[in-house]
Computed example of a mutant assay.
Amino acid sequence: MARLGHFLFGIFSALSLFGVHAAPADAKISVGDIVNALKLNLVTHINATITLESLTTNLISINFDVKNSLPIELTIDRVVSKAGINGTVFATFDHTFTKPVVVPLLGTANSGTINNVLLTQGALASLDIIPLGFLDLISTDVFVRAFTIFGMLGIPIPVTGIKQSHVPTAYNLALS
């Protein structure tokens, strides 16, 4: 138990050091910058469902799997994301979870269905990226609480500007 305490103290000391002391007064290093620098690859898989209605509304549904590499429970309350290919945004959403996503320590969790994801290039143009089988997270902000207990309590930590390349993506065409 003492080792865990020392480990957690070290993590938060390092975050404090990088976020406050290592940057010039006019620059800030965010938790998202640290996640990007360490290439933690938080999102392990995306599932996108395209319906016949998507062709006229340019809206799809998605869900994603997220990995927690820390020995503490994390709870996700909200995600704001832009995803695409080679810097071109194809999909965007801002979703607040009615039931927050609890990601167990050193575990994974699925987001559940997120509806009304906007295809910014239109549904027909977006069909061209399906054969690639991946998406890039161009910019993702995650509003997370750390040290939660079964999704309750916790310390709010906004993780902004997450970037991740080549997230495996499955496209489900529900055209019937």
Rank of each mutant, 00 (worst) to 15 (best):
G161E: 03
L59A: 07
L137K: 03
H6A: 15
L118K: 06
Q121Y: 10
S54T: 03
L70D: 02
A48G: 09
N41Q: 12
N58C: 12
E53Y: 11
M1R: 02
T140F: 13
S111Y: 07
I29C: 02
T49G: 08
A22Y: 03
N116P: 12
I85F: 01
N116L: 05
T140L: 07
G19P: 06
R3F: 10
A123D: 05
V101H: 15
F143I: 01
N68P: 05
I46G: 06
K67L: 15
V142F: 13
K28L: 09
V102P: 04
T51S: 08
L74D: 05
H166E: 06
K82M: 05
I11K: 07
P24S: 02
L74P: 11
D65M: 02
L4N: 00
G161R: 01
V80R: 08
N115W: 11
G32S: 01
I29H: 05
S16I: 04
K28G: 10
D136L: 15
L127H: 04
L70G: 03
G133Y: 11
F18Y: 13
V43S: 00
L132D: 02
H166T: 07
L135V: 13
I162N: 08
I157M: 08
S126P: 15
S81G: 15
T56W: 12
G161Y: 08
R145D: 04
T120Y: 06
L38W: 11
S111D: 12
L8S: 01
G154N: 08
L118C: 11
T113M: 15
R145W: 05
S139T: 09
A23M: 12
D26L: 12
T88K: 00
L8D: 03
N63R: 02
A170W: 04
F18G: 01
V31Y: 12
L135P: 10
A22R: 00
L52M: 13
I162P: 11
N63M: 04
S13F: 14
S16V: 05
D33S: 05
N86W: 10
F90V: 11
S69T: 15
M1C: 04
I72M: 02
I149Q: 14
A123M: 02
T98G: 15
A25C: 12
T98E: 10
V103K: 00
